[in-house]
Simulated scan of single mutants.
Amino acid sequence: MKNAAFSIFILSLGLLPAACTWVEPTVSGNAVRVAYDGKVAGCRDAGTVAVTVADKIAFYHRSEYKVADELETMARNEAASLPADTIVPRSEPKDGAQRFQAYVCGKTQLRQRGEISTPASQPPTTQDGVQTFPVKEH
């Protein structure tokens, strides 16, 4: 009886990694779309995103679908930090790694890493609290 319980315990430990997902989408990452068709005409290039996840644990090879899903989630999270709002896969997942090209297709403003950005809908405010608005001539 002890051997059977021990065998079930060992078997359940072996199945545990198959059910795990270690990469969770961020709020901003959820807003990034994946352009599988590669249609990004009119978009601005925001850079390349290279991501990696574990594709095997010891002797266990993880599901290629789960690995691909986690790679995409990581790329969306990373692209949001550029900021970019669209990614296009540039390679197939291989050995737990994949490359994506990031683009700005919407109202997201490009910025350098570490630079604080002003939302597109908010004009900049000067030191004395005055906001300036662009004048549109007709």
Rank of each mutant, 00 (worst) to 15 (best):
Tyr36Asn: 12
Tyr103Asn: 00
Leu11Pro: 01
Asp45Tyr: 15
Leu11Asn: 06
Val32Gly: 02
Val135Ser: 08
Thr21Glu: 12
Gly129His: 02
Ile10Arg: 12
Ala19Trp: 12
Pro89Ile: 01
Lys66Asn: 08
Ala58Thr: 07
Lys107His: 06
Asp55Ser: 12
Pro89Asn: 02
Tyr36Glu: 14
Glu115Val: 03
Lys136Asp: 05
Ala79Lys: 02
Gln122Pro: 01
Arg99Tyr: 10
Val27Arg: 01
Glu72Leu: 04
Phe59Gln: 07
Leu15Trp: 15
Ala54Gly: 14
Phe6Gln: 15
Ala97Gly: 13
Asp69Ala: 14
Glu78His: 13
Ser7His: 10
Ser117Arg: 11
Ala80Gln: 03
Gln122His: 04
Asp55Met: 03
Arg90Gly: 09
Glu70Gly: 06
Ser28Pro: 03
Ala84Thr: 00
Ser117Leu: 09
Val104Trp: 00
Ile87Pro: 03
Leu16Glu: 14
Ile10Lys: 15
Lys39Arg: 10
Ala50Trp: 05
Val104Met: 03
Asn77Ala: 07
Tyr60Asn: 05
Gly96Glu: 08
Arg99Ser: 09
Glu24Thr: 15
Thr118Phe: 00
Arg76Asp: 06
Gln127Leu: 09
Ala18Ser: 15
Asn30Ser: 11
Ala4Thr: 13
Arg44Ile: 00
Lys107Trp: 01
Ser7Gly: 09
Phe59Ile: 10
Ile57Phe: 11
Pro17Gly: 09
Phe9Pro: 02
Gly114Met: 03
Arg113His: 13
Met74His: 04
Val104Pro: 00
Ile8Ala: 11
Asn30Asp: 14
Asn77Val: 06
Lys56Asp: 10
Pro17Trp: 09
Ser12Pro: 00
Gly38Ser: 13
Ala5Pro: 04
Glu72Cys: 00
Phe100Leu: 10
Glu24Asp: 14
Ala31Trp: 03
Glu72Trp: 00
Gln122Thr: 07
Lys107Ala: 03
Lys56Cys: 05
Val88His: 04
Gln127Glu: 15
Val49Cys: 01
Glu137Gly: 02
Glu72Thr: 08
Gln101Ile: 01
Ala4Ser: 14
Ala46Cys: 08
Leu11Asp: 11
Ala84Ile: 01
His138Lys: 12
Glu24Ser: 14
Arg62Met: 04
Arg33Gln: 07
Gln122Arg: 08
Ala41Met: 09
Leu15Phe: 13
Ala46Ser: 07
Ala41Arg: 09
Ser28Gln: 05
Gln101His: 08
Pro17Asp: 09
Val67Phe: 12
Ala35Arg: 13
Cys105Tyr: 03
Ala79Ser: 09
Val53Gln: 10
Ala19Leu: 13
Thr26Met: 04
Pro93Ile: 05
Asn3Glu: 15
Val40Asp: 02
Arg44Leu: 02
Ala102Ser: 11
Gly106Gln: 03
Gly14Arg: 12
Glu70Lys: 13
Leu11Arg: 11
Phe100Trp: 12
Gly106Asn: 00
Ala80Asn: 03
Lys2Tyr: 11
Ala50Val: 15
